[in-house]
Nucleic acid binder design. Sequence first.
RNA 1: UGGGGUGUCGCCAAGUUGGUAAGGCAACGGGUUUUGAUCCCGUCAUUGCGCAGGUUCGAGUCCUGCCACCCCAGCCA
Length: 560
Amino acid sequence: MSSTEEKYPNNFIRNIIEQDVADGKNEGAVMTRFPPEPNGYLHIGHAKAICLSFGMAEEFGGETNLRFDDTNPLKESVEYVNAIKRDIEWLGFKWKEERYASDYFPQLYEFAEQLIKDGKAYVDSLTADEIREYRGTLTEPGKNSPHRDRSIDENMDLFRRMKAGEFADGEHILRLKIDMASPNMNMRDPAIYRIRHVEHHQTGNEWCIYPMYDYTHCLSDSLEGITHSLCDLSFEAHRPLYDWVLDELAMNCHPQQIEFSRLNLQFTVMSKRKLRQLVEEGIIDGWDDPRLPTISGLRRRGYTPAAIRDFCRRIGVTKSDNNVELALLQSVIREDLEDSAPRVMGVLKPLKLVIENFPEGEKVALDVANHPKDETMGTRSLNFTREVYIDREDFREEANKKYKRLVLGSEVRLRYGFVIKAEEVIKDASGEIAEVRCSYDPDTLGKNPEGRKVRGVIHWVSAEEGLPAEIRVYEPLFTVDFPDADERDYHELINPESLEVHHGIVEPSLKDATLEQRFQFEREGYFCADSKDSSPDNLVFNRVVGLRDTWAKIEKAGGA
RNA sequence: UGGGGUGUCGCCAAGUUGGUAAGGCAACGGGUUUUGAUCCCGUCAUUGCGCAGGUUCGAGUCCUGCCACCCCAGCCA
């Protein structure tokens, strides 16, 4: 990430930090943090936040802590902690320290007692429903709880007994004493400690009271010496509370919270709740299903860390609502793989060709470049044989001039090999084309036939040497561009054709494809060996993204 | 009807003190090409920056008033 090419274009947060550094604020230091709650997997929206927080710190010579915001043991687990760490590392970021909000539980407790002593916090004994009623509405002020004026001693006694486990869940709660009439709902005496007799994944059974986000986050930031605390816009209205807590406790480190709008990507859902639902209902193959916008899903699909980082740079950072098109995500991975993926040939929908005038059993070894522009990627040898497979899309019994592939009675070149001509179509009982009988021109290897023009070039795989492979082609999981905005139940919006499985044939060199290795299947797209299911005896490839397809446009426009 | 935000090309987005609308994606032309890929060239907000007024020699940038959309009423984060 240190390369200048990966620097962010100008954005308002960078401008703020730049100014702060220039002004000598915090002695010119920049310290950020990424604070995920371990209650789900990270997705592309988190990647935006990660790239920003880590990126800004790095750009200004600072560092970033990874801090698990683990204040709600009911929803969290170490499985998520581990998945999150794995994803961040894979993305290419190194945190300075791994922290947990739970590391600060003892200090947080002391601060709470301090607040009680100062008359700035009190124990409330209303039920959750009552508290809601007392809170008022957006347009009406709330009412003070009848317990709001308990004495400091009584509050302290009650709070200590809460900690000691003398009360059941929900019996009491610690609230900040701010202003029940505030137009900002978050300032109407927010709850900061609740009783929860549950085991915590980090602290075990040490605590039965747990601090809440608003109280915990600002103090954790302060304790870690964070200078710029970047978060999404939903916390904007919480900033006064963030500042209130730090001010009332007179913390000497007061980080600046800056909010930016979160990423909305077309044709997918981003909320952890919905993603979890998809996983739990078995609609997809786990958190790393290649159709998901999770980091693990994108990784399994074949996206590279560099492409995801590039995407995060290109979408920018603002406070405005955004609807990023899928085309941008596809564009960054194509750009990356265009240079880095070795080329191979693979056929998704095999159609057998028999080249009748090519001697049976004979092989012609072809020396083939692994990349058309990068010689350092070397070459490999491919055998041309009498029987080959091409894709069914590449053959038509009849077609107009715009169709640059194999047509009955005319010629086409088999990439890197000979020019062939389709002579006869053999059909099975149902009328389906079973194979195509062809002839080849032996004098066309590495040169064009004289006086004739071939329609084009198509890819192929030797029938004798090709390997069977399962090839998974993905389309968006949803049929509408913004499933979150749709009133219909999301089940109705699921694309039934989001996964298409092909039983294809790939060239023999793919036998040794390593997991997660990416290739360009010429004329088809970029593919990645599936990290879960692929093995030398059972090859499975995921299509990362297709090649840009000009032909599809022509076809759609009625050109052929 | 309270509070907090946001509105610049189809999408994303630059636009530091007002000075005469970057860039990327997409799209559309054309060239190269044994990948209809890549690459290259060109077009793509002609008083237009949510709308309406105002200040100014001059406003996307300042002022006023509207409009639209988003967020907030968890003992979630």
